[in-house]
Structure formats: structure tokens, C-alpha cells
Amino acid sequence: MKQYRAYCFDLDGTVYKGTEVIEVAAETIRCLQQKGIEPYFITNNASVNREDVEKKLAKMGITAVRERIYTTAVASALYCAEHHASSRIYLYGEEGLRKAFAEQNLHVVGPEEADVAVVGINRNSTYESLSEVMNVIRNGATFIATNSDKIIPTATGFGVGNGSFIRLLAHATGIEPLYIGKPESTMLELVRESGGYTKDEMVMIGDNYDTDILCGIRYEIDTIHVAGGVHSKEQIQERELQPTYFVNTLTEII
């Protein structure tokens, strides 16, 4: 297999499942680090920021460089810092989203003042809170969604993902959001810019075709699908666009 300078790992389903590390993933990451290659970690989870992910990985025996962690909370904040630096931003999400925007010193406001509405996963959503953010969007705020995941892995199976809430809001407002997370390429572009890489030096690694693999394909970099996650090899082989590689275990990439 070709060697790369920027290995971009999905997290949940690829490096760990919930709170349980996937040991072969941890072994693979350590092998890359022994070769002098620090990987990137890319997750659609908007409820966490870089520090949260760094601490979680450390508990699993994986050392991560904080600046090489990209959550959709971080990516959304970086996007808004570039494109909406002077805007008044309403955040609908959890603590990781609020921390990421605070780190960029962005102007976060209440629902009555907002020019921009950024919507991430909010597991405390209620009818009232969803109605509030719906009205912020209906009143003219630019609609940004951290990600479009319909479901998310949980310890007992799957839970409702941010994308399902986004579809509710899009239906209620008649407005489609700008998506930040995979399969959109915002986070991969941030990686490329941060390291000065060319696209042929990058690879996206994950278990989910609709997010991880499509993200890499659309960004025109190589992709590695890892078995045992959301989509099987057989399911993916029915798709028009194929990953660069299929592997049964991550140790095959080193």
C-alpha cells in the first residue's frame, strides 16, 4: 500500500466504539508515530472539542496532537471565523460547540439578535428548543449545520443523529443549511492547509461510506474502508464510486 504524509482517521467506529478502543487501531496509530507520522483525527461529533477528544484518546492509550484533531464543532468555528467573523451567532448544541466558538472569540448571542444559526447535536432537545432555533432561521439567520449524520453510534446500538434534527428544521423552515462535516470536505481542506500537503499525500480512513469514504472521494484524495463498521465491503461494492482500498483490519495499512 502507498505511504502517505497525512493519515486522516475517522474516530467512532474506526478508532473506538463508544468508550471502547479498537486495539488494532491503537496499534496502527502507534506504529505510524514510531515512523515519525502523526495522524489526524476527524470526527463529525459536534458535542466535543479538541481537548475532549485528546483526553478520551489518552485514556485509551493513544497520544494525539491536539492541533491535529478536527471535530465539526472546531471546523464550524474555524469556518465562521473566516466567513462570519463580524456576525452575531446563535449556537444550538452542546458544550463542545460552545467551547470551540469561544476559542475563536466569535460573537455568540441569544436567539433574538442572531445573523447566523449553527446547529449541532443537542441531546437535550425539546419541542420548545427546536421551535426556538426554527424561528431564528425563519427570521433570516444563515443556517449552518455541523454535520448531516442521520444516526450516531451508542453503547447500545444507535441514537438519533444531528442530521435527523437538521431535516426536521429544513422541512419546517424551507431552508437548506450549509453542512460542515463529512461528507463535505471542509475538515480535509483544513488539514491540507495546516500541513501544506498535496492531495496525493493525504488519505481518509473510515468505516462509513456515506461520510468518511465519500468525503475523501469528493475531495479527490485516496480512501481506505475498514471492515466491521457501518457499511460492509459487499454493500459498498454496489456503489458507483469505490474506495481506493478495502482492509479487514487497520494493521494492513502499515
Rank of each mutant, 00 (worst) to 15 (best):
H83I: 00
R88F: 02
I89K: 09
V74L: 06
Y70W: 11
V74Y: 15
C80Y: 03
H84I: 03
R68P: 01
E82A: 14
G93A: 03
Y92K: 05
T72S: 15
H84S: 13
A75C: 04
H83C: 03
E82F: 01
S76M: 05
V74D: 15
H84V: 04
I69Q: 11
A73S: 10
T72H: 06
A81F: 03
Y90L: 12
A81L: 03
A85P: 10
A85D: 02
H83A: 07
E95S: 14
A85L: 04
L91S: 06
C80T: 04
Y70N: 13
R88H: 11
T72R: 13
R88M: 03
A77L: 09
G93F: 12
I69M: 09
S87I: 00
R66W: 10
S76I: 01
H83Y: 11
S76E: 12
Y79Q: 04
L78R: 12
L91V: 03
V74W: 12
Y70S: 07
C80H: 04
T71M: 10
G93W: 11
R88E: 08
S87C: 05
C80Q: 02
S86N: 15
H84K: 10
A81Y: 05
A73T: 02
A75Q: 00
I89L: 06
A81C: 03
S86R: 12
S87L: 02
S87G: 03
G93P: 08
Y92M: 06
E94R: 05
Y70I: 07
R66M: 13
Y79D: 06
L78C: 09
S76C: 09
A81P: 02
E82T: 04
S86Y: 05
E95V: 14
I89Q: 09
R68L: 09
S76W: 07
I69R: 13
Y70H: 14
R68H: 14
A77F: 10
A81V: 00
S86L: 01
E95L: 13
R66S: 12
E94Q: 13
I69L: 08
E67R: 15
S86G: 04
L78S: 07
